[in-house]
Design a protein around this nucleic acid. Sequence first.
DNA 1: CGTCTATTTGAATGTACTCAAAAGCGGTGG
DNA 2: CCACCGCTTTTGAGTACATTCAAATAGACG
Lengths: 195, 195
Amino acid sequence: MNINTLLTHISNYSTLTEDEVESLKSVLIPRPFRQGEIIVNAGDAARYMMYVIDGYVMTYYTGEDGADHVVQFAADGWWTGDLFSLSKENKTLYSTRALSDGEMLLLPRSAQSQLLDNHINIEKYFRMLFHNALMRQQMRIIENNINTAEERYNLLIITYPKMEQFVPQKYIASYIGITPEFLSKIRKNKAGILS
Amino acid sequence: MNINTLLTHISNYSTLTEDEVESLKSVLIPRPFRQGEIIVNAGDAARYMMYVIDGYVMTYYTGEDGADHVVQFAADGWWTGDLFSLSKENKTLYSTRALSDGEMLLLPRSAQSQLLDNHINIEKYFRMLFHNALMRQQMRIIENNINTAEERYNLLIITYPKMEQFVPQKYIASYIGITPEFLSKIRKNKAGILS
DNA sequence: CGTCTATTTGAATGTACTCAAAAGCGGTGG
DNA sequence: CCACCGCTTTTGAGTACATTCAAATAGACG
């Protein structure tokens, strides 16, 4: 199992002791996945945090009307899904689906609680991780309010140029909060401008 | 200074030692505020996290066009503003403004770093605080995409009924991402239905 | 009371959605 | 290898949601 990518990621935030590294290694579960596979289903017990080593996944919320709403895309080097694994909630509200073949590491809920309680540097890592994620989400809410759909789309493909190559358009549409039909029209306009 | 409200809040998440309580008390700065006062201005050095003891404040982002966008309201018992005080950034992107007279506790940036490094239970508290805030923000993004402006408004006043009494409508409009004019029309429709 | 700001109202416009149908595309089986 | 199936994307017409701009009204505060 290639845990190095995660250790490198952690080292950007916090310095783990040998002991902490070993404790972490001992509880992570490698989990390969295939394109299209549903890795976690909303309503399941909230069991894992997931760290993507290779490939692409997305996490989405299914509304009362049955429509899916993409919350997050994740590529290698990203944690994803199931923040609720740490909270009081038993069930996760979100589903996670593979957009390509790949592999992730699962960090089980109970093991994570143990790690956090016993290893201050791991606690620190997650504190900083959540803090950064929170700042980004806050900015995303503002950007959603300020920008039109077309501007949100442009921002997305500038920030993550590779995303278009592996994410079906309808999921991109969902992520930026519009219908697939309307995204198609936006793209058509852009093409017209460039030609 | 009334720090008890904060200590109670912390005790919901983490149990502090006597020593930790003393350390925390020693660095908090009471800060009374008056209605309309700008407590923090965007572009200022990111100096404090703020915990509201009494009264109401809001935190907002000023766009390139000069328009303000409300990020968060905070009443007593809420942390607010300036998440960036903990990050690498030197300047805060957000301004904080008092919506009523009241009082807050300031937790200076440097003191907070010290506290987090030296007191695992305080680190744990903030980890859980950020984690909860992150879950809420994620859900807010989804709700913004799913719901119309009218539904977002209804959701807000059901969740925080008292808010209408002290927050000017234009700020509520900003928070839910619409113009003040359109919020006025939404409210007019509701009144019509009720009469 | 007067001034300043917030809110309301209305008309015209722009942005995004719905619904329906057609076209494109990838995989599967014959 | 091709024909078909299911799913995604495109296209268009009609509609709904939300904004802009301008003007009138209402409230707050000194």
